[in-house]
Design a protein around this nucleic acid. Structure first.
Length: 342
DNA sequence: TTCGTAACGGTTGAG
DNA sequence: TTCTCAACCGTTACG
């Protein structure tokens, strides 16, 4: 794919990459602020993220307990696994007059599939037509009961469980507005009691504080803060998402990184690129009085048990996701973000 | 003013 | 290797 050359600037002056999720750190921050009682509209203004996005992220968090973006791209796991096809074939063989909806019910009743991965009636019909045609359409293709069923052409694993993988899709970061858009937070939030100052993220969100003299002109791939290799690369939702490191197209070489920022003092899974990057020149959280009090944030970020999710989605991936998320959060918190000035 | 959400244009990755 | 398609993304605009 084409690497995004530039981020875009939204109406609030925030930088975003169209089509890509906000950095995890921002997502986490949105939830943190919300849990601190900050209104979504204030969060939107403060983080310069559209209120729609804030609303989405918070809604998603409330619904799933996850701040992580969903899995982008790819295809849903196929439900017509060889096992399902085999079962359908057996049902049809036992009762050639069986309707697709009956087969569907039977798949559910027999536990071959569950409600999440049971094929649709149309899918079953397609299976009957394409894969078991000689059984489903005896009038046309019946060649006798001894026909050896064709081998399922699909080489996927016969796993029925349908997962809804969520991935960490951290992407670019706030780098400041475009030339002329560098409206510092100090203008919109002049008080030292602003969310930014309270949480110590002014440099993070303040283009004037973080953008170079050329403002927002760097290509995305040149953004020192955009480097998804800095994100957790281990399993997400039970899926080894090690490729997640490579799916960032606008990464950078370590040399370029060091050219913009001191070596990240944080562990690699952290979003040092997001919060560090350019901001590192202006913001040295470690060892400062703005040391991040992550205890309250950890408290604030206690994720809801996915009780409501269990009924909506297969649970285990989400649990793993939340574990992943917790690690991500720990990573974020390990940035020693100065979320509290006190 | 605040908030929820549909529409939109974009990215992504499995098949 | 390339293409397709359906998932997701965040922004914008509207109510």
């Amino acid at each position: 794919m084409e690497q995004p050359s530039y981020g875009e600037v939204n109406q609030l002056g925030g930088v975003f990459v169209n089509g890509r999720p906000l950095p995890n750190a921002i997502r986490v921050r949105i939830v943190e602020l919300a849990q601190l009682g900050i209104r979504p509209c204030d969060i939107s203004r403060q983080l310069r993220v559209s209120h729609g996005c804030v609303s989405k992220i918070l809604a998603r968090y409330h619904e799933t307990g996850s701040v992580l973006p969903g899995a982008i791209g790819g295809s849903k796991p196929r439900v017509t696994t060889p096992n399902v096809v085999k079962s359908i074939r057996e049902y049809k063989r036992a009762d050639p007059g069986m309707f697709a909806w009956e087969i569907r019910d039977r798949l559910l009743a027999d536990g071959v599939c569950d409600k999440y991965n049971v094929p649709s009636v149309s899918s079953i019909s397609r299976i009957l037509r394409n894969k078991i045609g000689n059984l489903s359409q005896p009038g046309q293709h019946e060649t006798g009961g001894g026909v050896k069923p064709p081998a399922p052409p699909i080489p996927y694993s016969p796993v029925c469980a349908y997962s809804y993988p969520n991935t960490i899709s951290p992407t670019g970061a706030k780098l400041g507005g475009p030339p002329g858009v560098g409206v510092g937070l100090s203008r919109a939030w002049p008080s030292v009691h602003t969310v930014s100052n309270i949480l110590g993220i002014r440099a993070f969100m303040d283009p004037s504080a973080i953008a170079g003299p050329e403002g927002y002109q760097q290509k995305m791939e040149e953004w020192p803060c955009v480097n998804r290799t800095s994100f957790p690369s281990h399993a997400v939702n039970g899926i080894d998402r090690s490729p997640i490191d490579t799916d960032i197209k606008y990464n950078q070489s370590p040399s370029s990184l060091s050219g913009y920022m001191p070596p990240c003092p944080y562990s690699s899974p952290s979003q040092c690129g997001v919060y560090g990057g350019n901001y590192g020149h202006h913001w040295q959280p470690q060892g400062t009085g703005l040391a991040h009090n992550d205890s309250h944030l950890h408290t604030a970020m206690n994720f809801k048990p996915p009780s409501d999710v269990a009924d909506r989605k297969p649970p285990s991936p989400l649990i793993k996701q939340q574990q992943q998320q917790h690690e991500a959060l720990s990573s974020v918190h390990s940035l020693a973000l100065p979320t509290s000035a006190s």
